[in-house]
Each structure stands twice: as C-alpha cells, then as structure tokens.
Design a protein around this nucleic acid. Sequence first.
DNA 1: ATAATTAAAGACAAAATTACCCTTAATTAT
DNA 2: ATAATTAAGGGTAATTTTGTCTTTAATTAT
Lengths: 145, 145
Amino acid sequence: MFSKATEYALRATIYIAQKSSITNKLSLAEIANAIDSPPSFTAKILQLLTKDNCVINSVRGPNGGFYITDKAKQLQLRKVLEALNENDMFDKCILGLKKCSENKPCPMHFQYKPIKQQLIHLFHVNTIQQLAEKTDHRNLFNNDI
Amino acid sequence: MFSKATEYALRATIYIAQKSSITNKLSLAEIANAIDSPPSFTAKILQLLTKDNCVINSVRGPNGGFYITDKAKQLQLRKVLEALNENDMFDKCILGLKKCSENKPCPMHFQYKPIKQQLIHLFHVNTIQQLAEKTDHRNLFNNDI
DNA sequence: ATAATTAAAGACAAAATTACCCTTAATTAT
DNA sequence: ATAATTAAGGGTAATTTTGTCTTTAATTAT
C-alpha cells in the first residue's frame, strides 16, 4: 500500500506523539528501535517531517532529539503524507491511467471511487493525536511480545 | 497503490478480454501499444499471466498472440493479482506492522478494516468479463483523444 | 521443407527505493 | 572554553523494480 518511507513516517509520528514532549525528546536511536526501522533511513525521514516544523520538531545536542508540540498533534494525519510527497496517492487511478476521470472512467473507476474516498477520509479526519491515543504504546510497536 | 507490473497486468487482461478471441489473437505489440506499457516489460508480465494458462493463453507463430477463453473470463479479477504474487497485499497492515491483528491492532487497524474488506471484495466479486464490459474499449485506453 | 512470424526465456541495464556511513553543525553539560 | 552528545547533510552502497535486448522455440503459411 504505502512505501517503506511512508510506513516509517507514520509509525514514527504516532510513536513520537505517544511518548515525546518538549521536556522529553526522543533520540533517533530510540525511535528507530521502537518502530522497528533502519536508523539511518529513519533519520532521513525524520528530517522530512521536521522540515519547516511541518509535523515534528527537533533539537540537536545532549538531551536533544525529536518531539511534537500539542498544536502539531492536532494536525491531520494527511500532513505526514504531504511531508513525504505522497499526498496525492489516493487521487490516482487504480489501474494507473493518467487520464482516468468521471468523463472517461476506467473500468474500475466507479467501484473504486467510494473506497478511494474512504481512504482520503481516513487521513483527513484523524489527527495525529487521535491516532496516538488509539492504542496503548506498550503493545503497539515492539510487537515481539 | 499497485506496482507498475500489476497495473500493466490488470490493463492487459481487461484489454485482452475486450478484444481477443480464439480466432483473433492479439500480439504483444498491439497489447502494449493499446494499454500504454513498455513492450518488453509487458512481455514478462504476459508470461506470468500465461503460466499454466492461469489467466490468458498464448500461441506462438504467425497469427499467434494472446487471447482469453470464455471460461477464463469468468475468473475473478483476483486471479490476476495471484499471478503477480500480489494477492496478499490487502491482508497487510496499513502501517506495515508484521504482527498487527485483531488482538494486537495498530492504531489504524479498526478504521482500515472495512476499507480493506471493500478492496478485497472488489477483486473477489468482479470477474474479468464484467470489468471488460464496463467500458467501451474505444475510450478506455489509448486515452490521448 | 523452408521461410516468416510470434511468444518464451535468459541475460543484462537503468532507475528508483531502501539503507548505511561519515563529516558537520548545533547544543548542552561540565 | 571544552568535551560530549545529538540531529543535519552529503555521499555512497545494496536491493528491488522497471525496462531492454538477444537468442531460442514453436507455429504457420508458402
């Protein structure tokens, strides 16, 4: 469904929203370990999420790390996809046709349409905070228990 | 959503179902041109669809090419995904967690679940024939009009 | 039989994605 | 001030996906 990059971005964002605060920043190492992702690659993705403080914030140096503000927690989950430039993925034709449209629909167009809209809805209605609250972090990730 | 390979496979299958018959086989060149895909890569994909005659059939030599039997047209669209080994893609966790389940759901699990089921439904209820009939082939592909 | 045509098969190449490493910059604690 | 810590940034490597090319095998028309 999503690229690895997007999966890691979503997992990292949710994890950071669950565990971080301005006074308790999370290091790259902790995040990557918690969400089971390769640290170096995760670093690149966290950079994207940090650009212009679009989703999360970061501070360098001792006791530095990544965190998210209460305000940013109110952002729609869609912002994560935007940061990864994958926001338009749900607009695309399921058969990959460039000019699929209401006027010139592909054979799956009208059946896929309501599903597509629900997928968009999913990322539009949920805030980062809401997702973070959905599950106890103890059994969310690190799921080797 | 899907890989290029899967997109081409679905488009090719639908096109072949629309235009071919045992007496009117379609060449690789015609198919690739019609569905706007790279010929050599499409050849590989058609081979997968032809393996064990799982979806389409092929005949070599003059007036040879690809076609689909009336019987195969009654197959579920899911068979195309199976041939590409992408049949399990809808079973996967949207966040990429290996052990996401009802007992140990990821934060998006229960919201994604009904959408996932509709996606599976889409490929289970539609036969190849039904999809092929959905749109007039003249304005399906070659959509540069 | 022979030549022409078409898919099958295998090797290879290009591009994109994923992953890693090293240096630099910023920040903090001492 | 200095040393330690941590993310940022750049370059590179590995892997996967996508795409190409050439040869072989099968079939047909002549």
